[in-house]
């Protein structure tokens, strides 16, 4: 992509959406906009930019949408939430029958769809959980997305991707043009700002960790380090849930995959040598899920 085209797109996105791309995000533009260009019958980003310069307003909104869309929705990928209902919770209900408490960590909660999907799943099994204490700790690097998550306000578009209509009716209220998740569901989720590159041992011990679509932004050594530090704060019989395109296989042996449960892992009992965050780990990562 040539520099004038890149600058044009940067300005367009800044003007239309407030998205502020740094000078080196050509790859991001290409990965998001090339499919859109192809779909519009255009061969390249240059052709797309030419159309935009000519003032195609539908294309403008598609470009903004493609660039700003925060890749997260309720019950994203479905499968992890099936695991949660069908395997994780039934096992923990047995294993924690004496303690009657369960702690869950959403390690890159973004705008809240993941922790609230878990909270709604828990609500749906509330009969089995009477007298139990279930904590959901939702963390993210970005204070901005955490604020959105806390507010629990979603657009009509956001509540229609992944959320069954029955759950919308049951757990949301209309707030003007938006939909707000009910306060009792919001109250099940505690929010904290956290950078996975930094020490997170103060979070305590967890039975379940959802860490989906965030480690993809890190290099291999950092991934291994973070997996090691996550394993250290998990119960030995806990569960780790990764994103659909992620795995520990080939990276670390502190977790082992579960047969026939894609994306689901348990601590292997092997102790990681990762004691502290990697030195100089100060890079800022994009929020994943």
């Amino acid at each position: 992509m040539n520099q004038p085209d890149y600058e044009f797109l940067r300005k367009l996105l800044r003007d239309k959406s407030g998205l502020d791309l740094s000078a080196d995000k050509q790859y991001l533009i290409e990965s998001r906009l090339l499919p859109l260009a192809r779909k519009a019958g255009l061969a390249s980003i240059s052709d797309l930019v030419q159309k935009l310069r000519d003032g195609s307003s539908t294309l403008v909104s598609q470009v903004v949408e493609a660039m700003t869309t925060n890749e997260t929705f309720f019950f994203r990928d479905k499968v992890p939430f099936d695991h949660f209902r069908e395997m994780i919770m039934p096992e923990l209900l047995k294993a924690r029958a004496n303690r009657r408490s369960i702690r869950i960590w959403c390690a890159a909660c973004s705008t809240g769809q993941e922790p609230y999907s878990l909270a709604m799943s828990l609500k749906e099994m509330s009969a089995a959980l009477a007298g139990w204490r279930v904590e959901i700790i939702a963390t993210d690097l970005s204070q901005e997305v955490l604020e959105k998550s806390k507010a629990g306000l979603y657009s009509q578009f956001e509540v229609q991707r992944g959320l069954p209509i029955q759950l919308l009716v049951k757990y949301f209220k209309q707030a003007g043009e938006l939909w707000q998740i009910n306060s009792d569901v919001r109250g099940m989720v505690q929010h904290r700002q956290l950078n996975l590159l930094h020490d997170f041992s103060q979070l305590g011990t967890f039975d379940v960790v959802f860490c989906r679509n965030v480690l993809i932004y890190f290099d291999q050594d950092t991934k291994i380090n973070i997996f090691g530090r996550i394993a250290k704060l998990m119960e030995p019989d806990g569960f780790l849930v990764l994103g659909a395109a992620e795995t520990v296989v080939g990276l670390t042996d502190v977790f082992k995959p579960l047969a026939d449960r894609r994306g689901l892992y348990r601590p292997s009992g092997i102790v990681s040598t990762a004691k502290a965050p990697l030195p100089g780990a100060s890079r800022v990562a994009a929020a994943g899920n």
Binding site: E71, D77, K78, N213, I216, G243, A244, A245
Partner: peptide, 16 residues
């Protein structure tokens, strides 16, 4: 929505 009611299968896992 069509997935929700079982009319179509889940699309393959999208990459992030």
């Amino acid at each position: 929505k069509f997935q929700e009611v079982g009319l179509i299968q889940a699309l393959s896992a999208e990459s992030a």
